[in-house]
Design a protein around this nucleic acid. Structure first.
Lengths: 145, 145
DNA sequence: TATAATTATTTGATATATCAAATAAAATAT
DNA sequence: ATATTTTATTTGATATATCAAATAATTATA
């Protein structure tokens, strides 16, 4: 038993969990802001906490490819969440500035993000969450070897 | 502490874990078969275990959208892993038949899949795996509510 | 300092994710 | 038996994932 899916292991429960979580997140976000994705929100929050962060560092923080970040930011610029300005110190980079619309969005979405976490982790004790984190990190390091 | 990323919770450790796992899987697969993806392998294995399964059921098993399954199968047909035949009983569906190349691939990849799981879960006890599964299912059901 | 190596980002190509709408066949209701 | 509803799949549009190659700027080395 436990072989409910062809993968035969807990590993695809991980996949299912993150997919369900993303769905709830997107749904809750859409109630408040209509034209933004979960990933775009994350980028917004990261930039809000650290103005000077590079795209590579953003990518690392949310486990994405550099190319993905380029395109996510591109769309955010189109939708007027961000503006690209010249970075005089290092011309390879650009300064990513949050627009007024971006700032308003952060204010609107902060409580949504808290709600999302609470919803997903409802009924789990602190110890359980810690343990979950520990086990997942063990898997991550196994995979990285 | 634990606020290593902007998401601030274990939830993105879940995302990171599945991404790292998929990377290892893809790498190990490529050592043996060069033109197939992890998802395409899963479809192959599922069809091998149940010839008559519908696309919708495949989608549910691996937590994917129906549209994604259509396209994954399309590519598998192009690459000669599958053939679509007419389903006389229900003409909305088609019969998905594994080709000779597909069968050979399954033989080649079965040990790889076992290796992938072993690699990822190395050092975790049975009880820990069970617990991990339980906690993840709790999160899944929280999100589905 | 000119050259080589490294770093940050972008671009191209291909695969998958997601939602909504379109098709078409099957099942149900009247 | 026809109309209506449901089901299975497809298609279109847009977003993201991933890898490799291309750019362009910075840093290190001879």
């Amino acid at each position: 038993m436990k072989q409910k899916n062809p993968t035969g292991t807990v590993l695809y429960t991980i996949e299912q969990a993150i997919k369900e979580y993303r769905k709830v997140c997107q749904k809750n976000i859409e109630k408040v802001v209509s034209d933004i994705t979960v990933d775009q929100c994350l980028v917004l929050i990261i930039l809000n906490e650290n103005e000077k962060i590079s795209q590579i560092e953003i990518a690392k923080l949310i486990f994405k490819d550099n190319a993905s970040i380029t395109r996510i930011i591109e769309l955010m610029v189109k939708k007027d969440y961000l503006i690209r300005e010249a970075n005089e110190i290092d011309k390879r980079k650009s300064k990513l500035v949050i627009t007024e619309k971006g700032r308003e969005t952060i204010v609107l979405l902060t409580p949504v993000f808290n709600l999302n976490r609470k919803t997903a982790l409802d009924g789990l004790s602190f110890d359980e969450i810690e343990l979950l984190d520990k086990l997942l990190h063990k898997i991550i390091s196994n995979c990285k070897k």
